[in-house]
């Protein structure tokens, strides 16, 4: 055989062996002792590293959960109750179930309801736009439409609806991590209980202007008339600063408020079709 080939093989093999040895020794020498449960917990987690739990990532969550005395400060919104049950089992804690939540956009000022009064020409960012001025519609509270929430969502659950100019939440994909809530400079997105079969009622408006002003800016605005408050038999709706708010912990989903609202600002979603018709 050609001696060049032999030498090449020998040298390369030798080099590989030496380097492997170095790697082995270094790994040995600088090994960090870690609670093995951290690894176990981390493997149970979804691994999305989204930060929805409030920690820097899944490893940080696991690390903190292992050291914690109970799991009151730890909840993985992505994994939900199933994953938290497993984590609780590993760590020997009692699991506290939470109702599944979903992101809800509280603005329904669509292009038709809320006419544009000037043309924004800056960077396509809601944060930049909000810092600059009141916005390109007469409603200073409404959606700015640049899609910061869409960009913030790591699960592809948000998209802009070109017809309305508003973001739409894909409930199947939304894990209620809260990234969009933080991203919206107008605080339009709220995490609300998903409700039975996704049925829920909420006020899709944040305008606190007086009725006529709000109505002039947007035909879909909550005008603070209080009809929904009167219609609610369960004390679930409060009116503050000319704006109604539905408390999802008290709402019994009767939809009397939806029918009572003169501007259509109170939304009932995912109700079965036949009930809708009747």
């Amino acid at each position: 055989m050609n001696p060049i080939i032999i030498w090449t093989v020998v040298i390369l093999a030798g080099l590989g062996l030496v380097l492997a040895l170095v790697l082995f020794l270094v790994a040995r020498r600088f090994r960090v002792e870690e609670d093995p449960r951290i690894d176990l917990v981390e493997k149970t987690l979804p691994g999305a590293n989204c930060g929805g739990c409030g920690y820097a990532g899944c490893h940080a969550f696991a690390d903190s959960a292992v050291k914690a005395s109970d799991l009151s400060a730890h909840y993985c919104p992505v994994g939900g109750n199933d994953v938290m049950q497993k984590v609780s089992d590993i760590l020997g804690f009692k699991m506290e179930a939470k109702a599944p939540q979903v992101a809800v956009v509280r603005c329904n000022g669509s292009c038709t309801a809320r006419p544009v009064i000037n043309e924004y020409d800056g960077a396509a960012s809601c944060r930049v736009k909000a810092a600059l001025y009141a916005g390109d519609t007469a409603c200073p509270f409404g959606c700015l439409g640049c899609g910061d929430c869409v960009a913030a969502c790591e699960f592809g659950a948000l998209s802009m609806d070109p017809a309305t100019g508003l973001p739409v939440v894909d409930e199947a994909k939304c894990v209620a991590c809260g990234k969009c809530v933080a991203a919206c400079p107008k605080s339009l997105i709220e995490l609300r209980n998903k409700g039975p079969r996704g049925i829920r009622v909420f006020v899709a408006c944040r305008n606190t202007d007086k009725g006529p002003v709000a109505r002039k800016a947007c035909s879909n605005a909550c005008i603070g008339c209080g009809l929904c408050v009167k219609a609610c038999a369960h004390d679930a709706i409060t009116l503050e600063n000319n704006l109604a708010y539905v408390d999802f912990t008290k709402c019994k989903l009767c939809r009397k408020c939806v029918a009572a609202c003169p501007t259509g600002a109170v939304h009932g979603v995912n109700f079965p079709k036949e009930v809708n018709n009747g």
């Binding site: 800056g122 960077a123 960012s125 944060r127 930049v128 810092a131």
Partner: peptide, 8 residues
Amino acid sequence: PLLDHIRQ
């Protein structure tokens, strides 16, 4: 839009 972002 450099300045738009840098201001933020």
